[in-house]
Structure formats: C-alpha cells, structure tokens
Design a protein around this nucleic acid. Sequence first.
RNA 1: GCCGACGUAACUCAGUUGGUAGAGUAGCUGAUUCGUAAUCAGCAAGUCAGCGGUUCGACUCCGCUCGUCGGCUCCA
Length: 636
Amino acid sequence: MITITFPDNAIKQFDDTPTGMQIAQSISEGFARNCVAVKIKDRLLDLSLPISEDASVSFITTNDAAGLEILRHSSAHVMAEAVLKLYPDARLTIGPVVEDGFYYDIDMPPISEEALGAIETEMKNIVTAKNTFTRQVVSKDEALTIFKDNPFKLELINELVDQEISLYRNGNFIDLCRGPHIPHTGMIKGFKLLKISGAYWRADQAREQLQRLYGISFFDKKQLNQYVHLIEEAKKRDHRKLGTRLDLFSFHDEAAGMPFFHAKGMDMWNSLLDYWRDEHKSAGYVETKTPVMLNRKLWEQSGHWENYRENMYTSVIDEEEYAIKPMNCPGGMILYKTKAYSYRDLPLRAGEVGLVHRHELSGALSGLFRVRAFHQDDAHIFMTPDQIGEEVLGVLKLAERIYKRFGLTFHLELSTRPKKSIGADSQWEEATNGLKAALADYGQDYVINEGDGAFYGPKIDIHIKDALGRTWQCGTVQLDMALPERFDLSYKGQDNEKHRPIMIHRVIYGSMERFFGILVEHFAGRFPLWLTPVQVILLPINQELSDYADQIKKSLEAHRIRCEVDKRNETLKKKIREAQVNYIPLIITIGDKEKETNTLSVRTLDGKVKMGISMDAFVEQVLHHIKERTLDEAIF
RNA sequence: GCCGACGUAACUCAGUUGGUAGAGUAGCUGAUUCGUAAUCAGCAAGUCAGCGGUUCGACUCCGCUCGUCGGCUCCA
C-alpha cells in the first residue's frame, strides 16, 4: 500500500506501486493529459516510473516553466534522432535547454540552413508517431559499451562518478540522458529549427568543432506562432535597418565597429544627453572629462595593463607608450587626486560621458549593440563607508526615473564575491551589506548571482525590458575597493585622520551607443516628440507656398523646435505618406486657407488631422510636450 | 580570433550552365500646381568589396584580404 500526499495535503492510497501517470489519472484524465513530470523531494521524475514508497508529490504540467524545459529537452532528443536518420555518421554530444529553446551539438560535417527543413520533416514524423520515452538505468560498463563509437559520450560517461547512469529510448533512438522527459513525442505540438552554427566541444577552441543546431518548441502551436511573430517583429525593428532608413547612423569599413552618427542621429543623441544632464544635475552630480589617451604607467597602476591589455588600443608617442582608454576610471582617479578632500566633501558624485575604445573580437561586433568605440554615461562616486547604502539607493532611484522616461521597466540582480577576487573579507562584507541595505530600502525584489561580482567588488546590475519584452543589461552599480587602494585615495575624517574612500562606479544608459540602438528597437523608430530628430514637417500644398512655409519654419526654429519643409514638387498625398513612414510626429499642411487665417492644420501619426490651430497654441503645446519629455503620440 | 553564410547603383534586391550588368525606391530635369498615405515622362547613376589566379574571355570558378550577418557562456 502506497500513500501519496498531494500539495493541498489531500491523501490517496494505491494498492500497487503506481506510476506518476496513474496518480495523475486518479485526479482526472484531463489533468493527466497536461502533466509532464512528477516532483518528489525536489526531484523531477518521469511519469512512467513506478513510485515504490510513500511520498508527497506535485505535478509539473504544460503550464509550468519546468514543464516547458522538459519539453524542449525532449525536443532536442527528437531533433538528434532526426539528424541521425539523415546523417547516420553524425555523433551526438550534448543537447541542453537554453533560455530561448534548445540546441544539440553534433559532430558532423557542416550543413547549410536549408538542410534544417529536411530535419524538421523527419522530426514531424517522429512527433506524429507519438513515441513514448522510456528510461533505463545501466551500469557504467554497459554505458561504455553502448556508446563505444562515440568518444564524446564516453568522455561524459567517464566523468560520471556517483550518479546513476540512465538512458532514454524513444522509438529506435537511444541517448545518454539524465531526464526526465515528456511522456511521448506527440506532446511537441509546435516546434521550429532556428539556426545552425559552429561551436567547440566543451567551448574549447582547441577541441573539436561541432555543429550546433538550435530549435524551439512549445506545447501549443499557437505559442510557436506567437514566437515566430515576435522574431519577425524584432526583425522589422532592427536598429541597423531603421538606422539606415531614418538616416541616423552608419558603419564603414574604414572603422569597423565604430559608428558614424548622422545629423539626425546626433539630434537624438543630444536630446538623450541633455536629458541625462538635467537628471544628473538634479541628483547632485558634477560633470567632468578626462583624456582619451593616457600613458602606459597609469594603466599599469590601475591594473588594466595586466588584466585588460588585449582589449586596449595602444600607440607610441615620443618614445612613450600610450593606451586609448577602455574605461574612464583611471582618469577619474587622477582627477580625484588633484586636491585634498575632507569628509565634508563626500559624497562626491563625478559624472563623465567618456569615449572609450575596446578592441572587441571582430566576430563579436553587432550594429550599435557591440561596438569598439562608445560613450559610457559613467560616474564615480567617492564616499565614506557609511554612505554606501544611501548612495546606492540614490543611483537606483535615478536609474528608475530615467528608464521610466522611456517607458522601460527593469529588474535588479545582485552579484556577490567571486572566487578570484581581492580585498579583505570584512571589506566585502561591508560592501555587500551596503548593497543589500540599499536594495532593501529600494523595496523591489532582486535576483542574487552568487559569485558573479567583479574581482574588485560586488555589484548590482539593472536589466531593462523593452516593448517586445526583451531584456537588456544596461545599468550597473559597482563598488570598487581596489582602485582607491591602488591610487592611494584618501580624505580627512572628522577624527583628523586619513581615511580611504569607497568608490562606486556606475552607468545608467551603459553604452550610449547601445542604449540608442535599444531605443530605436523599443520605439520601432516612432520616437517620442522630445527625442525624435524631425519634430515637425511643413508641407506646402503647392510651390507658391514654399516661402510662407519657410517663414513658419523660422519662427518654429526660434523656439528650438526641429523642423523641416518638404518643398519638392510632389503631390500632398505623397509628401504626407513619406512623412508618415518616416514617423515624423507632427505633419503640418500649408495651403492658402492656412495662410489667410494664419492657422495650422496638424496631422499626427495616428492619422488624425486637426485644423485651425493658431501658431501660438501650436508652439505652446509642442514646447510643453518637449519640455516635459512625454511619451504621448496624441499631441493634438 | 574560430565556424558558417553573405558582399551587385545612395537604399532594397534580380542577374539563367563563364560571353564585361538590370528593376523598384531615392536623386536630377521637365510637365502637372494638386487639400490629407505613392501624378506622369525623361535623365543620370555601378572598377559587381579589394587584390591575385585559372581562362580567348570572370559579377559568375579558385585563393587571399577586408567588411557584414548568425553563432561560439548555458554540460548527459
């Protein structure tokens, strides 16, 4: 007699040793159909396994994140089976679930993306067959025999020490696997193979080059369709495409990974920066600037020469070696040391929008998201140890204000001391507690990444979420206990003794360039009025009215409203269409009626037209939205 | 850097088995002077990424270089 306890503390007894599936069926057939695995003592088990002792069980269903992971792992098996059918000589290695789907690394000759279609077709057959997954426990020797032709699996098996070694079989396919798996392949209702790429065995360049096949799957075909739609939507918003079309920036062979910003891009850039300066001034920051190129000696002192040299551009001038800064902090150290500080001067919040260069691997470059030259909206805050909590809280609140302005939400992650790190335990404790205190004060939940901090101090990373629900790590607040030491920074305390300040290193946009790219995709090119490069376009309905349009342009520009006139000899319809597809928020048509009555006819991006607006009323309304930096599209 | 794919006019792309390039958009010119999402006609525009090779002949085939894109952290 087996006694099973359910999460709601209900109890049921079974004569035999029931399988998870039988227990689920005892609740209802419908429920059982949606079950993926059963959880006993924090272990996930296959539904097909008999349960031989009393237990508290809970079921993982198709609605659980864990259920989706199991589905995707099973999907990886199905994909591997399909690959083996088409490429019998291929050798499987590992096939884990990743954030956005699953992959399988396979030792086989490179194949092109077109080949994925054939694999998908094979997979469809396997799914339709509704093959069950069965688990089998084997001894190490048995496992070594079964996989004797696969050196990768042998390597894995030999690394398994105390664990049970299990195999999973579905149809004729067998794979070494910890499991659990979905009951049968028919549960993979929607799947798609996404891409293929090279990957190294064990991520080691010295080892075998494998083919990594990526896929995604869902319990519901609809969810797959949504996912495909999201990818298409993201493609449409691609900042590299929009950047070209909207004339914002470009890249050129002459400087790979270093963006050229066009006049329109710079209008946006400057709006972003103006906003940044407004907020930082209000938050008690001063702004500083340090040189782009500094002597090697400085980098030796900061430790960059030792730890970051491969990423630094260097040059020799007058027989002295220089490096272009990859970070602003060492320059900031020199700035700090230009005078003597009292505890009364602290905290000192010194901002710097510094241009840094990093030699990223050529294969890592990607539009504005990964560049070799970029501006960090950096700031170094120097403070006494007891100011940590308050200063970190200040940064979090500032970040919140700024992200909100763009309609971005965010979440926080705390990273603690890594194995390889410098500084005394007590320092780390004090610093980490300071961050935790600030997070507690701030009151939002956060994730802890144990051991993920920088070698010189713990940090809080801020991950923003864009309009498509994608997350990006932008902001970071790092406590630095190394640099103040290396540069022997000090301040005079109330006790008239010399003390070492603690330093915060923080960014909010992160990389201005990358944040710019994120905003392009977040807004899909439809920027809010205050940010958009061309705020108003004037469309005279015939060429005689061009001069009058110019007059209006001048008076709008006197208010610093960014304005263009489309004087081309084209129809009004055409000019309107073009203004709309270029997402110009305010489209003003100018005809004789407007000229006579001295009014404006304003069209907004929602396609609504409002006529008879006086010049004064227009300017007032526009300036209001610009000054308040609203996200509104309905300006009139 | 490594693996794979790609690089044709300002932009988006076509170019059949190797016979030295074509469309739409943008631009320019002309006609039209127009009232809320594409008027018509004409013109001009490319060292086919660069360099080298094979060939009578290369955008096309081969090699190298540069650049772009997708990956290269996720441990059965």
